[in-house]
Design a protein around this nucleic acid. Structure first.
Lengths: 175, 175
DNA sequence: CAAATGCCCTACGCCTGCGTAGGGTCACGG
DNA sequence: CCGTGACCCTACGCAGGCGTAGGGCATTTG
């Protein structure tokens, strides 16, 4: 881990590790430097200051989320199968909950989260409509369930997974 | 606001205000003292140290949540009406999302949240069963939706409300 | 009224984090 | 082989939070 030159992205990755493991309060230059076996001299070489680092992390996350959505949209599959996969896709997002918690203390983070929430909800709404479910409130409820599953502590990962599939089945049953 | 003697509960209330408005990082003795127009001398009179203050806040919150649940259980009403009310009851809980975010940085908070989540989910499961819905995964999904609604930024409060009622209607429609 | 107790203020030493200044080291191209 | 630029280290001053010592005011109690 030591005696290696670092890049911006190394710091950003370390930032997300710290955010996930210890919350937004761990996004400090000196603390991150310790985990990277270096000093904050490196940090202040790559980033102007701590807020600049934060915005770099944020745009990185937002970009990644949007890319995922675009890749999702461009799948040529049946609408129902796409829906199933999209609903399950939130399981891997261990950072999504961390970013959401971060959003409570930083306005620009909150704005970014609201932005991609809006996009994902819109996509889910049209996806459901394509499955024959026209009620947008149901899309909202399903999206809320996805968010809830990922913010809930891990009370059995399988339970949450079954919960979402059961919910999708229920929604698709009444058409 | 000034020249008034403070109690433990005044500090705890200020703590929750700070937690909701600025996140867990705002739970500091000196910062809270400023908002209460006093000094940290008062804080260290009422509490041994900052962690002790945190546990006081936590037990206060846990107690309140459990009391709410007990009051909920003891209502003599039809099962369906009780379900409707219970599902809507999460709207007023503006602190619930803040505590959930706090739980990500403090293990004991996480344990407390997991505890009351388990209790509420169990209650919701039996409530649904009493309404004729036996699938526990649906209870889990509905609870996740409640949690998701309160952690989502306020993209129209009415939208979220309609989402949950629509979801409950859907669940009750298929029996 | 006097004394004791509850509650708060001030001032201090310590630690941690911020951002900067200035210098060091290593990898290159010439 | 030398310089140049990218990258990192060290040391500093500043700010803010922690917890404590010791004293001050006010309210209750005898």
């Amino acid at each position: 881990m030591k005696n290696k030159r670092l890049s911006k992205d190394d710091w950003i990755a370390a930032g997300f590790h710290a955010l996930i493991d210890h919350g937004p309060a761990a996004l400090k230059a000196e603390a991150l430097a310790r985990t990277l076996d270096t000093t904050k001299g490196s940090f202040y070489w790559h980033f102007k200051d701590v807020p600049a680092f934060h915005t770099h992390m944020l745009t990185h996350w937002e970009q990644q989320a949007l890319n995922g959505l675009v890749a999702e949209i461009e799948t040529k599959d049946t609408a129902v199968a796409t829906l199933q996969r999209f609903v399950q896709s939130s399981k891997g997002n261990t950072n999504s909950a961390a970013v959401r918690a971060w959003a409570r203390t930083d306005t620009s983070v909150a704005k970014a989260v609201a932005h991609i929430d809006k996009a994902r909800l819109k996509y889910l709404t049209t996806l459901l409509k394509r499955c024959g479910v026209g009620n947008p409130d149901l899309a909202c409820a399903l999206y809320a369930a996805m968010v809830g599953i990922e913010t809930l502590p891990d009370n059995d990962e399988t339970l949450g997974k079954n919960a979402l599939t059961s919910l999708v089945d229920l929604i698709l049953a009444l058409r």
